[in-house]
Design a protein around this nucleic acid. Structure first.
Length: 905
DNA sequence: ATACCGCATGGAC
DNA sequence: AGTCCATGCGGTA
């Protein structure tokens, strides 16, 4: 086995130099090469290798055979395949790796050249055992402690996780992730045969100690015993039918990732098993390396991180594991976690598995049909999913099918959590998102190799990390977003919306006390700037926006894990939602709505209103301290405030405005909302994304996934549905649309300005950033009045203000706008839908306006009115995207086609 | 009409 | 450029 010149992937021949067989289409992996790749073997050699008979088979006559000083077993010590099969004794001689671990006296062969250390794979005996586990896909031998010392040589480069590394087992990885004090032991090999660990998982009482770990874990397991165990263990139907293996390549990351979310709170770990090996300077991992791993961060050089994307790194907290394993004597090895996507949590019942995770931790499947996979949830309930794959781009896409019942079950848990939080009342709309922001975790129980799944609430830290890792293109991410988009924090919020000391979800499958403790005992409110608040989308955020310090109380501001919290000793006050704004003079103000007359009153920005507030309490403006006084704020100004205001406030405002809303007019609303979301693409806070690859579903999303109850049964929501979900979606819709359109308008105005700047006559400069009072376009003689005068006025006004050259420019060619409007590729179809939906929306607006229900729909801003809000209004027009749509696809909506305006005529 | 299945697509990395 | 994966979508039951 010295061939290193063979290109494993390019050659069709088995990498085994004494074998000329062709590899299969999916060659199986063997030992690690110097290049970092894994040797690709034909099936026969791979099987031999897997069974630990490689050297016995192919190197029988080669030199290098030695005898274990302990057990006398012959061990080949002369090839790369066997590099980890033995340990060199200081006094000479060797121990087979089983004995070396059994005696717990040896680290890796320090005399090995580094290249050999990291080029080598696992000793056959380990592979043997683990391979048995894999091969026994229906037999499930226990997956005992299998740790090759060399695995701790984490300083070595680690290549990509190969598609199949079934025998590269690192159970200690998971163990090592645990604090020693929390580790669970494998009492004995014999106990591996116990088959009641599922019960004990939930009910047991065994609690390991560090000593146990040392005795049992560190001393290792005789490979032969393992082997025997693997072979002889009767099939346990209650266990997954295979031994799951953690690829050794994960050791770096596994250790590193462990506890990422809990870094600040994680107790200093005691010396671990790993450390014994790490302490060997020849391992290339010194104490600093240990620290790196221990502090929950992968090594900065990224070695070992490439195997699994960071977003899949298990971030189980100690408490997570403790909870899961508290009453068992099983070792829990966190495998990976995945933040649920909308698809995953949706009704399809299919959960996409990260490919590398699936291939690394799940049994190998060769047929798309895959095999049934038994997974136990954290409650001890067992589920059977179909683990399978779809061919996809010459690759595979692994899915778990049949997860609907489980997800539903989990959703109930999520709901339970919500009942403890302010989110509870908003669960209908948040239910899916609760799921979306939950990480589905997969662990493995040892002995038994049983898969355990659970939900872990995405922590702010992990969310941020995912966010960072994702390097979200929009770059918009505030700490507030990160936290706010994390419904996990809901559980920290009591019914008042404040973070309560005891609010952590005891009903959560995996309680996270860490957060609790780090937040301290006092009630806290996440500090959110008003500017942030207006961007809030989630109900929890809305609640945050309403929270106020107790009267006469000055909050202490504390920083916890990067987030600022106001800390109060007394109960907080639920304030009245208001709209924060800045008046013309730059003074910060807020607008509050009277409970009785619904008029909006201007107030100083620092005023904290009670939840019920009326004009009579308006001591700041005596002239408007009565409901009979006129409203200072014009309807349009108010409308323009909508996108800026606190959603909680706007909600009420909109409710008042929509009381007699024609539901039918909302046809297409969902689509529009969805498209609006689409259009926002790079604008929404990154944290709104459940995953890095989940740009579409956000609050208000109405796709088939989102409008359905999570993994839900039950009827689809129709357009006329008035359930909470639908109503909320509809309410959100306007905010989404308005914000989107406003931003769109701004962008376009800027773009137009830039375009025109070089060649424009002086006159054009005057057209830029026009306030909403601009009326240049109103005189356009060619405008077609389609929906309403209101609409046209607004539209034309905006159009003329931002695109004065429409008559001369092919308005259909505006790639950047197209791009803005539709991040997706199907801009044409999207735009068409957008227009359609927009049309319907505006029609609805027109109905509302003309019906006299509200005076909000003012068609034209009156010069001089609402000057305080001019800054807010600026040149933003709610119909911006409407116009965009028209311009982009005039042929599709001829009814709304605009002729060139007179502005540039 | 609906649900399911399997693949295709395309954005993100 | 290749890969991953979220999800869209057409075919089928």
């Amino acid at each position: 086995m010295t061939s290193t010149s063979v290109a494993t992937s390019s050659s069709r021949i088995c990498f085994n130099s004494v074998c000329n067989d062709l590899k299969s289409e999916r060659p199986r992996k063997g030992w690690r090469l110097r290049t970092g790749e894994l040797a690709e073997l034909c099936d026969r050699c791979a099987s031999i290798y897997d069974e630990g008979r490689f050297c016995d088979t192919f190197h029988l006559n080669a030199s290098g055979w030695r005898t274990c000083e302990s057990c006398g077993k012959r061990v080949h010590c002369g090839c790369i395949v066997s590099a980890y099969a033995f340990a060199l004794l200081d006094a000479g001689g060797i121990l087979c790796i089983a004995c070396s671990r059994k005696n717990a006296v040896l680290g890796p062969n320090s005399s090995w050249p580094p290249s050999l250390l990291f080029n080598s794979s696992l000793p056959e005996r380990f592979k043997d055992c683990s391979a048995k586990g894999w091969s026994q896909l229906t037999g499930s031998g226990p997956a005992p402690w299998r740790q090759a010392p060399g695995l701790f040589n984490s300083s070595t480069p680690q290549p990509e996780l190969h598609s199949r590394v079934p025998y590269e087992v690192d159970l200690s990885t998971g163990i090592d992730r645990l604090n020693v004090s929390e580790r669970l032991s494998i009492p004995s090999l014999e106990k591996k045969k116990n088959e009641d660990f599922p019960e004990r998982l939930m009910n047991g009482s065994l609690k390991p100690s560090a000593h146990d770990i040392h005795e049992n874990g560190n001393t290792g397991i005789n490979c032969e015993e393992q082997h025997t165990s693997c072979l002889t263990k009767p099939q346990d139907s209650s266990n997954p039918p295979f031994g799951l293996a953690v690829p050794y390549t994960s050791i770096d990351e596994a250790n590193g990732q462990m506890g990422v979310s809990g870094t600040p709170l994680r107790p200093n770990p005691q010396p671990s098993l790993a450390k014994q090996f790490h302490s060997n300077p020849h391992n290339g991992l010194d104490s600093s390396g240990e620290t790196q791993m221990r502090n929950g961060r992968p090594r900065p050089d990224g070695r070992g991180r490439n195997q699994l994307f960071p977003r899949y790194w298990p971030r189980f907290t100690d408490q997570d594991l403790q909870q899961i394993s508290a009453d068992s004597n099983c070792i829990i090895t966190p495998l990976f976690e995945k933040m649920l996507s909308a698809s995953d949590a949706g009704r399809i019942g299919r959960l996409v598995l990260p490919k590398k995770c699936a291939e690394a931790y799940f049994p190998p499947i060769s047929q798309p049909e895959g095999l049934p996979l038994k997974v136990q949830d954290s409650k001890g309930k067992e589920w059977i999913f179909q683990f399978r794959f779809w061919p996809n781009n010459n690759s595979r896409m692994y899915v778990l099918e049949g997860v609907t019942p489980c997800i539903q079950n989990m959703q109930l848990q999520a709901g339970d959590v919500g009942s403890d939080s302010v989110a509870c009342c908003l669960l209908p709309v948040a239910a899916l998102f609760i799921l979306l922001f939950r990480n589905l975790t997969f662990s493995r129980l040892e002995p038994g190799g049983k898969l355990v799944m659970g939900f872990r609430k995405a922590s702010a830290a992990s969310a941020s990390e995912q966010e960072n890792e994702a390097k979200n293109s929009n770059g918009v991410s505030t700490h507030g977003d990160a936290e706010l988009a994390d419904p996990s924090s809901w559980s920290k919020v009591d019914k008042s919306g404040y973070i309560a000391k005891e609010a952590l979800g005891t009903k959560v499958a995996v309680p996270r006390k860490r957060k609790n403790s780090v937040l301290g005992s006092k009630s806290k409110r996440l500090r959110i700037d008003n500017e942030d608040m207006i961007e809030l989308k989630l109900t929890w955020e809305e609640a945050q926006g309403l929270l106020r310090p107790p009267p006469n109380h000055v909050a202490n501001v504390v920083s916890i894990e990067g987030f600022e919290f106001e800390e109060y000793g007394d109960a907080p006050v639920l304030g009245k939602p208001t709209i924060f704004a800045t008046d013309k003079s730059g003074e910060k103000i807020q607008w509050a709505q009277c409970e009785d007359c619904f008029k909006w009153r201007r107030l100083p920005s620092d005023v904290l209103l009670p939840s019920k507030w009326t004009c009579s309490s308006n001591s700041w403006d005596p002239e408007r301290s009565s409901c009979s006084a006129t409203q200072e704020l014009t309807a349009e100004e108010l409308e323009n405030l909508l996108p800026h205001c606190n959603p909680a406030a706007s909600k009420k405002m909109k409710v008042a405005k929509q009381e007699s809303e024609n539901v039918d007019a909302l046809e297409g609303l969902d689509t529009l909302a969805n498209l609006a979301i689409l259009g926002e693409g790079g604008v929404l806070p990154a944290s709104s994304q459940a995953t890095t690859k989940h740009p579409r579903h956000r609050p208000g999303c109405s796709c088939i996934v989102c409008i359905q109850p999570p993994s839900g049964k039950g009827p689809k929501h129709k357009q006329t549905c008035t359930c909470n979900v639908c109503q909320t979606v509809k309410r959100r819709f306007r905010t989404l649309m308005l914000r989107r359109e406003k931003k769109q308008s701004q962008k376009e105005a800027d773009a137009t300005r830039k375009k025109q700047q070089p060649s424009l006559p002086d006159k054009v400069v005057d057209d830029e950033p026009l306030p909403c009072t601009t009326s240049a376009g109103n005189s356009s003689p060619n405008q077609k009045k389609v929906v309403s005068e209101n609409l046209d006025d607004d539209t034309n006004r905006l159009k003329s203000s931002s695109s004065p050259f429409k008559g001369q420019i092919d308005l259909n060619i505006q790639p950047e706008r197209e791009e803005e409007l539709s991040p997706g590729s199907d801009s044409g179809g999207t735009m068409r839908l957008l227009q359609d939906a927009t049309d319907k929306y505006h029609r609805q607006q027109s109905i509302l306006s003309s019906s006299g229900n509200s005076n909000i729909e003012v068609t034209q801003t009156q010069p001089g009115s609402g000057t305080e809000l001019e800054k807010i209004n600026s040149s933003i027009d709610l119909r911006a995207s409407h116009r965009d749509a028209d311009m982009d696809h005039p042929a599709i909506f001829p009814i709304k086609t605009f002729a060139p305006t007179s502005a540039t005529g």
